[in-house]
């Protein structure tokens, strides 16, 4: 096994990690500020991907599609927050699970109604096509490098937003004590809507960028949603820093598992089955890691105080 191969896997892991971060940052913020468990977060991922594919197909520009994914997912987020989710903040988790599960059914079937059951395909923009030559002679797709760059930029942007701006201050205050900042005259309802829309937009962005690598189809949000849950549980629910660390950990562990385990399985079962067995066990791996971390630290790596 060469060093180049190892670096390639590392980059793949990073790319999965930053995409998971885009999903889990919103999820963990929404939980941290509003105390809401949002199963429908994967639907925003799907909405973003479909908005991007539809607009890119209509205009011929991936970049217009990307803008549409942000706008579409944010708009869906505002709509859902104002019409439904707002009524759930004071309810127990059971009601939240049920209502957001209902939203998944509505989003998935609604999208199937609009776009049909066949997957859509999204082309990588010309600017980012082809492979780049990395030091060490490794050829790596430019688009995937750009995705990593985007993820890092968003993480940095979120950090600045939360630590340096007035909005970020309110978000942090909201995580600490909702009643108190409402009493101090902050319009908590507007803050909720903004945070929810921000989370939805990030999920939509993730959906659009991943949509160009895979296909755009109904239900694409489900596996990502569950991975994002694993991420925020590992990281400590409500903590954006924990989400970043958890996302990178899950991304790297999952990629490493998918790379090594089929080869290890090949030693025990026939080659035809080794790939399937290995990748199946690799899918289980992150849950095992999660169970181990939680057995040691039940509140995750960075438990928030809220």
């Amino acid at each position: 096994m060469s060093l180049a191969l190892l670096v390639e896997q590392l980059l793949n892991g990073l790319q999965l990690g930053v995409m998971l971060f885009l999903m889990s940052a919103g999820l963990t913020l929404i939980f941290g500020v509003m105390g809401l468990i949002n199963l429908a977060h994967g639907s925003f991922y799907m909405v973003g991907a479909f908005a991007c594919a539809a607009v890119a197909a209509a205009t011929g520009s991936f970049w217009a599609g990307l803008a549409a994914s942000l706008a579409g997912a944010a708009a869906a987020g505002v709509l859902v927050e104002v019409a439904i989710v707002r009524r759930l903040y004071d309810r127990d988790h059971l009601d939240q699970v049920l209502a957001t599960f209902a939203l998944i059914l509505i989003f998935s079937e609604g999208t199937r109604w609009l776009f049909g059951s066949f997957p859509l395909y999204l082309d990588i923009p010309p600017l980012l096509q082809g492979a780049a030559r990395l030091p060490g002679g490794l050829q790596y797709p430019v688009y995937r490098l750009a995705v990593i760059g985007l993820g890092v930029a968003v993480a940095l942007g979120l950090y600045l937003l939360i630590s340096r701006t007035r909005l970020g201050m309110r978000i942090r205050a909201g995580e600490n004590d909702r009643e108190m900042i409402a009493a101090l005259g902050v319009d908590i309802r507007r803050l909720n809507t903004i945070v929810f829309a921000l989370g939805a937009a990030l999920a939509g962005l993730a959906g659009a960028t991943v949509g160009a690598l895979q296909s755009v189809q109904v239900g694409m949000g489900d596996p990502v949603l569950i991975l994002a849950f694993v991420v925020i549980v590992i990281g400590g629910i409500g903590s954006v820093r924990g989400a970043l660390l958890g996302a990178l950990l899950v991304g790297l562990v999952d990629t490493a598992g998918r790379f090594f385990l089929p080869r290890i399985a090949g030693l025990f079962v026939p080659p035809a089955e080794a790939g399937l067995v290995g990748s199946g066990i690799a899918s289980m791996l992150i849950y095992v890691v999660m169970a181990l971390i939680l057995a040691l630290r039940p509140k995750g790596l960075f438990a928030s105080h809220a």
Binding site: I37, V97, I232, V233, A291, A295, P298
Partner: peptide, 24 residues
């Protein structure tokens, strides 16, 4: 050992483990 949202998600994760085992 946990409660609330963490409990919901951990039970979900344990089910996913078996789900992927059945596929693999």
């Amino acid at each position: 050992r946990t409660s609330g949202v963490a409990f919901i998600m951990i039970t979900l994760a344990f089910a996913q483990m078996i789900f992927y085992l059945a596929i693999a």
